[in-house]
């Protein structure tokens, strides 16, 4: 709000700018949202109808896009011919498990890091954040070798542990910022009243509960959307939704209808969750550097 409505200009230039702005945003929105519309609508189309395109240059022919009879068969094949029910469960367990582990241990660590000072704390922090920022492929090379020797490749516990490599540092980093905002005086007051340190910690939990909940959701989101770890560490026994969707692409026969349906199945829940925690989304996506 700060930079708006201070003084209203009304010159030809400013009017031209504002018209340009509106047109620009309109075009951008169409460009951003159209792929979703195509995905959603195509998932209800029969194969031949999905491939229908107007002649090149025939802009009026675009209405052909809506010329189809809706069918649910792609969704039913996902669950009958491909076992997408299992893959959804795998995704849920892997993402949920790592999110819970990360946030439980992460909040304990974040709380103590927020309350205590010691030498080398900055270095510890740098280690934590660089674990989060490390390229997934680079992390996976040694992790794959270790997990193979422990027989963790292709299992859900292995995948949960793999997701924890990026979720745990994320949780520690974000939640520390949260605990920093809770005044120590609250705990002090509790302890003067005879509470132990752990009781004092529990007493401030309700203050940070909404944030903790939001970060569980964010951790689920990151893990759910992962492809690389799931493709390598989870290959075989722990196939998640993005990998299963990718496997519908076969050299001879790409089942586009099913792929679009699987895309909807994978994307829709995360979009809803994202809207629920919108308030924390921006902070989460920018590692807490920017708050909305």
């Amino acid at each position: 709000m700060a930079s708006r409505d201070v003084v209203s200009y009304d010159t030809p230039l400013s009017r031209a700018l504002s018209i340009f702005g509106t047109v620009f945003v309109a075009f951008y929105l169409v460009w951003t949202l159209l792929p979703f519309v195509v995905m959603f609508v195509s998932s209800f189309k029969d194969m031949l109808e999905a491939f229908k395109l107007p002649v090149v240059g025939d802009w009026a022919g675009m209405t052909v896009f809506f010329d189809f009879s809706p069918t649910l068969k792609h969704y039913t094949t996902l669950f009958t011919e491909n076992s997408f029910g299992t893959y959804i469960m795998n995704s849920l367990i892997a993402a949920g498990g790592s999110a819970v582990i990360s946030v439980v241990f992460g909040s304990l660590a974040a709380y103590s890091l927020s309350r205590v000072d010691f030498r080398g704390k900055q270095d510890l922090f740098f280690w934590i954040i660089s674990t989060r920022m490390a390229p997934v492929v680079a992390v996976m090379v040694p992790l794959y070798a270790i997990f193979r020797s422990l027989d963790l490749v292709g299992t859900l516990p292995g995948l949960i542990l793999a997701y924890t490599t990026f979720n745990l540092p994320f949780a520690i980093w974000m939640l520390k910022g949260f605990f920093d905002n809770v005044p120590y005086a609250i705990e002090e007051a509790q302890m003067v009243d005879g509470a132990t340190r752990f009781e004092a910690f529990r007493s401030i939990l309700p203050l940070v509960a909404p944030g903790i909940g939001a970060f569980v959701v964010l951790c689920v989101l990151f893990a759910w959307n992962d492809f690389l770890f799931a493709a390598i560490i989870g290959s075989g026994g722990a196939k998640t939704l993005p990998v299963a969707t990718r496997e519908l692409v076969q050299p001879q026969n790409i089942q586009w209808g099913s792929i679009m349906a699987a895309g909807v199945v994978t994307t829709a829940p995360m979009m809803l969750l994202g809207l629920v925690i919108r308030k924390y989304l921006v902070a989460g996506l920018t590692m807490g550097a920017v708050k909305e």
Partner: peptide, 16 residues
């Protein structure tokens, strides 16, 4: 509306 694409799994975005 702008937040939407960021919620999509990059692999699914690639397929789309």
């Amino acid at each position: 509306a702008l937040l939407m694409p960021m919620m999509m799994a990059p692999a699914v975005a690639g397929l789309l």
